[in-house]
Design a binder for these strands. Structure first.
Lengths: 225, 225
DNA sequence: TTGCCTATAATCCATTTGGATAAGACGGTA
DNA sequence: TACCGTCTTATCCAAATGGATTATAGGCAA
């Protein structure tokens, strides 16, 4: 089966150059091209499932909606899709934000323009996000400059079952937190949506809230997730 | 002129394997081998200046003095020397500590054992610290897991409104995030609940989501709040 | 065995939400 | 002036949600 790729870049010439490079390899199929983040998200919505790209090559600097925002929304809406930033830009903050937003890889155009296809093939084989040496080096420097710090997260042992939620309820809370609705939760857990709803209402009672939004707010603020 | 390399590993077999690999290239000269951090520092002290290694390949796990400590001391005493960690170990914290201590590169043995020499040559040419894809990927994950955070520097940060939300919309998103419903939002802002709803729907459109729960999830996960 | 808790499921009903659409007021800009 | 974007309000309708209640089955403990 072919590997579907999406290309998002505001310059038509860039899009066609990359497309040409990829299409030289018969494994790749370019199922979507877009000229900015908004255009990309719009087109993703109406894309048939079998055309869903497994990799999105995304420029960072674009009008209307830039790469960072597009990755943020895209990686949330399509968790299975891998976003690889492909840009000439090596600004520290951009790098960091894009990664934070959910970028799976980060390539500098001039470093990898020649062998994008090869990089993608490798990535497909070993599942490891591609990073240009230049970017990796930049990250090392950020760490050494104390611009980045490792957050020590020690999990407080004591509250294992917050609010006396049962295991099932915690399981459901996790799904709830991802914005799923009853149908989807039921689907995911192979139970009736009615049951899913019952669990959710039970959770509300234990958390002393009465809406999804409130439950999510509480869950996030108290770090139940 | 030859490039002097130091090899620090507690296993004699590892040392000789690496040494052999390097010596196949005539540019390299192995001017020092040591079996742990302390041994390395001791030998560095009595090394003639012209034998000073420009690169040190250093194992992480060693008795007496491990790689992290050795790099910390070594990079301080010999600032021109580049330390490349070479280990099978991919523990997050070790990676981070070693980088922090001053590691210039970080290679996983199994990923690069075959072409250590090539990697070093590249590094010598472009001055960029080598990082195994596996390690780079791990760092990406650390960033995404919020295990690492960017320390906000004084940067004037053109506070770009995420997703092109208007001020009013951001204001409303903040209330939304507290689990408020249209009525309450309208009440709070002294506007009609209908208007509040309109704003919320506009926000959905910009975030490309279609429910409060999804909007909250996105807002929290991407740190829009 | 009896009782309690949990997970499962369903039904009824009122409220809230999401989606589409229209339209007026206001400020800034071409 | 004419146009555009933002904020404001409204209405209609369909779908999802919240609340209350009932019921069955399994596991576990007194």
């Amino acid at each position: 089966m072919p590997v579907n790729i999406a290309i998002v870049d505001d310059k038509a010439s860039n899009r066609s150059i990359i497309k040409d490079k990829l299409l030289r390899h018969t494994i790749f199929e370019v199922s979507l091209t877009a000229e900015n983040g908004k255009d990309f998200l719009d087109k993703m919505k109406i894309l048939p499932l079998d055309k869903l790209p497994s990799v999105v090559l995304m420029d960072l600097e674009m009008p209307e909606m830039d790469g960072v925002d597009a990755v943020a929304a895209g990686s949330y809406l399509y968790p299975t899709v891998k976003f690889v930033m492909l840009t000439i830009f090596d600004d520290e903050e951009k790098i960091f934000k894009a990664i934070k937003a959910g970028a799976f890889g980060y390539l500098l155009k001039d470093e990898s323009a020649e062998n994008i296809a090869e990089v993608l093939i490798q990535m497909h084989e070993n599942g490891v996000g591609p990073i240009s040496p230049g970017i990796a080096h930049k990250i090392l420097q950020l760490v050494q400059n104390n611009t980045i710090s490792l957050i020590q997260k020690h999990i407080p042992e004591k509250d294992k079952t917050p609010f006396n939620l049962t295991e099932r309820e915690q399981e459901i809370l996790k799904l709830l937190v991802h914005g799923m609705q009853y149908k989807e939760i039921g689907n995911q857990l192979q139970i009736s949506p009615n049951t899913a709803k019952k669990h959710v209402l039970n959770i509300y009672a234990k958390l002393h809230v009465n809406s999804k939004a409130q439950a999510l707010a509480l869950a996030y603020e108290k770090g139940l997730i």
